Simulated scan of single mutants.
Amino acid sequence: MWIAADAGGVAALKDLLREQGLAPHATWLVARGEDDGEIVARAWDLTAVRAAHEEFVGRFGAVRADSDEAAFVLRTRLVHAWRGTFERDPRLPRQLLPPDWPGFASTKLFIDTWRGLRVPADRHWRRLARDPRA
């Protein structure tokens, strides 16, 4: 997928795709006063992205760590889950998303939770990384 706010390079890109034999596989979407919501719906499955964000918030919204080790494990799980959620999200501008978009809450949750776990998780990691022969 290639998205550009400036259509100035479209002719060159079309030429390149023709030269490489890829033109039959290209789909062009050009916005000219069209409904942004319709274009977004054709390009991305926001229902699935919404579900991923809501699942992330449901899973990590109330978690706490009561030890350095628990913080380390929780941070590892948090980052792994966030990568899966983040990769699904096209990170569209706010004006192209529904007003109740859960991606904003899940992003804030990820950042706040990660920051809260950083010190105890790093402390546990340093203990694990310490050479027992030293």
Rank of each mutant, 00 (worst) to 15 (best):
A31M: 00
V30D: 03
V10A: 04
F110Y: 14
V30H: 01
A4D: 15
W125G: 12
F72E: 05
D35C: 09
R130Q: 15
A23Q: 08
G37R: 01
E34C: 08
P99L: 05
L74K: 07
P24D: 11
V49Q: 10
F72G: 04
D89G: 00
F110Q: 09
F104C: 08
A70H: 14
R50L: 08
V63L: 12
V49M: 05
R64L: 10
E19R: 14
W28Q: 04
L13T: 01
Q20D: 04
M1R: 09
G103V: 02
P102A: 07
G33F: 04
W114L: 03
L74N: 00
D35V: 15
T85E: 08
T85K: 11
W44S: 00
V57I: 13
D112C: 06
V40F: 01
H53F: 02
T113M: 00
G33W: 02
S67G: 06
K108D: 12
G84F: 10
I111L: 13
F56D: 02
P93D: 05
L13M: 13
L78I: 06
P93M: 02
K14W: 12
S67V: 04
G33L: 02
V119S: 08
R83G: 03
A7H: 07
W2M: 00
D36M: 08
L74Q: 11
R130I: 07
R130L: 11
P90W: 06
W125S: 11
R32N: 11
D66G: 10
L16G: 10
H80A: 15
D68C: 09
E38G: 13
T107W: 08
R64A: 08
R77A: 06
I3G: 06
Q20G: 02
L96C: 04
M1N: 10
A5R: 06
F56T: 12
M1I: 08
A62F: 12
L128S: 00
R115C: 15
R127Q: 15
K108I: 15
L78C: 07
S106C: 09
R75I: 04
A31E: 14
P99T: 09
Q95V: 10
P24N: 13
P90T: 03
A48S: 10
A71W: 09
R88E: 01
F104D: 14
L16A: 09
F110M: 09
A41I: 03
R42H: 03
V57S: 14
R18H: 10
F104W: 14
F72M: 08
A7T: 14
R83W: 01
G33V: 00
A81L: 04
R42W: 12
P120F: 07
D6Y: 10
L74D: 03
A4Q: 09
A129Y: 14
G9M: 07
V57A: 10
A105Y: 02
D131A: 07
R91N: 04
W44G: 05
A11M: 12
E69V: 05
